[in-house]
Design a protein around this nucleic acid. Sequence first.
DNA 1: AAAATTTAATTAAACGTTTGTTTAATTCAA
DNA 2: TTGAATTAAACAAACGTTTAATTAAATTTT
Lengths: 213, 213
Amino acid sequence: MSIDKKEHIMDVAVTLFAEKGFEGTSIRDLAHEADVNIAMINYYFGSKENLFVTLLEAKARFMREKIDAVQSDPSLSELDKINQIIDGYINRFLSQPAFHRVLQQELLVTNRELLHQSVTALFIKNTQDIVAIIEKGIRKKVFRKVDPQLLFASIIGTINQVMLSRTMCNILMNKEVDADPYKDPELKNRLTKHIKQMVQDHLLIQPVLQKQK
Amino acid sequence: MSIDKKEHIMDVAVTLFAEKGFEGTSIRDLAHEADVNIAMINYYFGSKENLFVTLLEAKARFMREKIDAVQSDPSLSELDKINQIIDGYINRFLSQPAFHRVLQQELLVTNRELLHQSVTALFIKNTQDIVAIIEKGIRKKVFRKVDPQLLFASIIGTINQVMLSRTMCNILMNKEVDADPYKDPELKNRLTKHIKQMVQDHLLIQPVLQKQK
DNA sequence: AAAATTTAATTAAACGTTTGTTTAATTCAA
DNA sequence: TTGAATTAAACAAACGTTTAATTAAATTTT
């Protein structure tokens, strides 16, 4: 039962941190929402900050594995790899909007240095790998001489922008203000289509046939 | 002297909020950093939250005026308008990275409803205007049938991504980790060039001559 | 113009809450 | 019966805000 309880606390913590931020979420809120005693959080995790780091490490592995897999697959073209990574990010971010929001917050706030650094470290490796793929495509002359780092920033940034605020996302999607856009498959479709098309238009020297009849 | 002091407090507040977030910045920190008495903040602004709203309203006018001006200029093509808006956003964001970071934080955190709503409202109008410009270009058949909302998300999102974290930006720019990338004109140049090129590749039916000799 | 009076600015101290954390006692399972 | 799980209560510290007193500036009255 203790392991279930620990994971239950982590689940609730992700949601609360996502809604209210790290500072904005009190241990008492968290304990009440998870229906456990206040002392249990420090009992399990030592401290509030350590709870956060645990959350981070537990959930951050997925995207790295995805990138590693794509990168070492020789049957994929560079554009295929980029497209699969785009799919990976969209799936990842949309399936865990709460957690993703917490990550963003920690990147924005710099006074909790440990947290900030561990989140930053996650992004560094991903950036390097994707830049390497793009640069390889450029050397092969299947890609134009684009700015690899900033193109990656555009891919991630587009998703981040949509994830920034539920309200904002609803406005972008022309939905009611109180809808839950992240569960709507339409968002995923539009987002995937838009990013892939934009990246392709920007990258490819020989534009592929556009299906616009 | 009181007006100077009020503005001085606001200046310090923007910086501190940007570094530590809204919850993470205490009135005592702020008072100490601004070298005023703790009570002066409530004396001038009523409350901490109201100080934030005041900050918002005082600084948010610029971008709206820029968009309004561009929109009503008949001598500009749709692509010109988009390009000028891109310039506007890049100038705005890069010149006030601290303030911009506070805005992002408030979009991410939803438990301070008043602040969240007032920040969201700012973005709504801007989105609508830019979408309208893109849609006009599509009707005129100078633009492809793109996703206007998500293209706007890509433009803003790219800049936001770079602004997310000083450390991350330095990595993207291949600078030392402790550099100040936002004062580096190279970032502005790269960012402007990349976004305009990407948007153009994505939007234009007849690709203009690429200067890649 | 000087003095008196009113208003605004500024201060130190205290307010009541809430914060994250700890303690010491108790319940539960092995 | 031993060790882990769980609890209520208390901890000191920090929070945003308020108060009541004091200084500075402005206004009015003499």
